[in-house]
Design a protein around this nucleic acid. Structure first.
Lengths: 367, 367
DNA sequence: CTGAAAGCGCTTACAG
DNA sequence: CTGAAAGCGCTTACAG
């Protein structure tokens, strides 16, 4: 384990200066500071108490967050498990809140006794991840992709399974399919939007701007979308929700409006955890395993700390598509409107009522 | 800040011995060990790197857990906020998994650089909390009560509001009220059960054993209870669920069975987070604010670390009762059965049968 | 099972 | 803005 003495030697300065840099003394010349820090990082410097180094990794948010979102809780759960395999502990950190303006990321982490960081970022804080990587501090970014960089990252690409999900709706006969996403752009949601567009494109169905809804990820957001969708003409017969909270808000609103799911409207959700099984009817969904993202990230990071990796981590785990009770063929009237531009056979609506009652609606359950 | 030297002096041993105790050297005589540890605790000893002490508190589970339960995620969220107010960081720990058999709790926490611990326990690990307190290590126990001890704890007593909730059902006209709780006893659930019994007792209504359901806290558990309740004669016209997951499982099952909530069955749930707003119909519920428990615990603990408290923490925050859409007067037929002790109008059973058939027919599907 | 002494890692006046 | 030296906190052979 590198000591201040070795770093001092490598940088051609005194151990006093090394100590100053590590403690963020403003008197140190910026050039000296950068030199010392880069050597400290390369040498994998870790402060020690007596002979013992810390065995902490950080679960670091790039900005204010709440662990109350199921995705984050599940990721953290995985990180906790993965870190334990190599006997590391997990410290919660908020970079925006706790890092001092003047200190580097490396200084910040060292001050906290953190040897490696799992970074939870958003699209707007990608540069933070780049900075950490540039400084050479051990890290893994969760749930973002950085091609052609030296940033370690692990994510789940939900695009292919979204294509499959939308194709499933198309196979059921849906032609008017809505898409609901966060109004703040984010790579995950963009993957899903891409999948939606690809699936429609394959069939030569144009993407209608008015069928793409961008809303805050709240129950109210989902409810608003549902209300809007039902008032459109022609209206979507199926909706894909890029986030579980939006889907839950919408399904609640459907109940309130008396819209039968899936007979009058099919729902496909996106699920990070087990939300799809907590709603009625259970939600057909594209799913990602958030806990596995955390687990694999922590496992790789802690292994890397004892035996540095040659290659950056660049892993993508698969999403999966699960058919549950919220999807069915479109109601005939609406489907007809679409497929032949006419306005369908009203005469069948009576039959439909009966059908929808006798049928389990679960015929397509897979898992 | 106490050093090994002061502790050595206080214990009448050398600093070598103090160091050995702190590092759990098995060669040290148990008596010496205990003496040194108790002095170290009393002096608030903290290992330091150079001049700096760590500023970590632990969020310590007494046994294996998953952060995936919304209650735990919300508590941790609060702890994270509260610790930050005094600039402390939070380390996740699992006592069962990580503590070595031979070391004391104090040794364990010191080895990890932890200055105080928030303990998340269950009824079966209350002795762990007692041990930590006996050793004099700074701590707060979340969500348990320890009267007449020196254990610091904070919890939410849901008993009074449960009384209120059940009285609300009684005022609506319900006389057959079911109660659903975890099959593993737990203080929180016992509080609620107590409230249920008190409310019925005030009206002179006996507690019927067959109306008290004890099940695993899973969606399937809730579904099973719902099915059982609907097949009883007389059947409960209202149900109180001591846990949100049980309530969600039951409400799903109600939809599947075509039981109208609240017209045919009233639901009162217990809620830690915002589950009550994610279901349809929104759930009338007794609620506790899990994040506040964590926030207050972390706030008190970190304040205590800089300025030791004279009194142990013994705080109970109030629960609150929120009326939403899942409660209404009982259906008349069933209410009649109760209020006059007769067995009601069988003539209505035909209607009920039809109802159950007209529903999607998914009655037996379980997730 | 314990301690005196050596020594490591780090920080901090002090001097320039 | 930097370093030599003093010194703190801790651990670890070594000795008993």
């Amino acid at each position: 384990m590198a000591s201040v003495r070795e770093i001092a030697e490598g940088a051609g300065v005194s151990i006093t200066t090394v100590s100053r840099v590590l403690n963020n003394d403003p008197a140190v010349h910026p050039k000296t500071r950068d030199l010392v820090l880069s050597i400290a990082n390369r040498a994998g410097y870790v402060p020690t108490v007596g002979r013992r180094a810390t065995t902490n990794i950080g679960f670091a948010y790039t900005q204010d967050i709440t662990l109350a979102h199921p995705f984050d809780a599940a990721v953290l759960d995985g990180v906790f498990q993965g870190a334990d395999e190599h006997r590391f502990d997990v410290v919660l950190l908020n970079l925006r809140r706790d890092k001092r303006r003047e200190e580097s990321y490396t200084q910040f982490f060292m001050r906290k006794g953190i040897r490696g960081a799992i970074l939870r970022t958003t699209a707007s804080t990608r540069d933070t991840c780049q900075h950490v990587a540039d400084e050479g501090f051990p890290h893994v970014v969760i749930s973002e992709r950085f091609d052609g960089t030296d940033i370690n990252c692990i994510d789940c690409n939900s695009m292919p399974e979204t294509v499959r999900a939308v194709e499933y709706l198309l196979a059921l006969g849906h032609r008017h399919i809505g898409f609901v996403m966060h109004n703040v752009p984010d790579r995950d949601h963009m993957d899903r939007f891409e999948g939606y567009k690809v699936a429609l494109g394959k069939r030569g169905i144009p993407v209608r701007d008015d069928f793409v809804f961008r809303h805050p990820v709240t129950l109210a957001g989902g409810a608003t979308v549902m209300k809007m969708a039902m008032s459109m003409k022609p209206r979507p017969t199926a909706m894909y929700f890029a986030d579980p909270i939006l889907a839950v808000g919408a399904i609640k609103k459907a109940h309130e409006l008396g819209v039968k799911v899936p007979d009058e409207m099919s729902f496909i959700g996106f699920d990070d955890t087990n939300t799809r099984h907590t709603v009625y009817p259970t939600l057909t969904a594209v799913c990602q395993d958030a806990a596995t993202l955390g687990l694999e990230a922590a496992r790789w990071l802690t292994r890397t700390l004892s035996k540095p990796a040659k290659e950056p981590l660049r892993k993508t785990i698969p999403a999966f598509f699960e058919v549950n009770q919220s999807t069915a063929p479109p109601p005939e009237t609406v489907a007809d409107v679409d497929s032949n531009g006419g306005n369908g056979h009203e005469s069948h609506s009576g039959d439909r009522e009966d059908d929808s009652q006798s049928l389990p609606g679960v015929g397509s359950v897979e898992s």
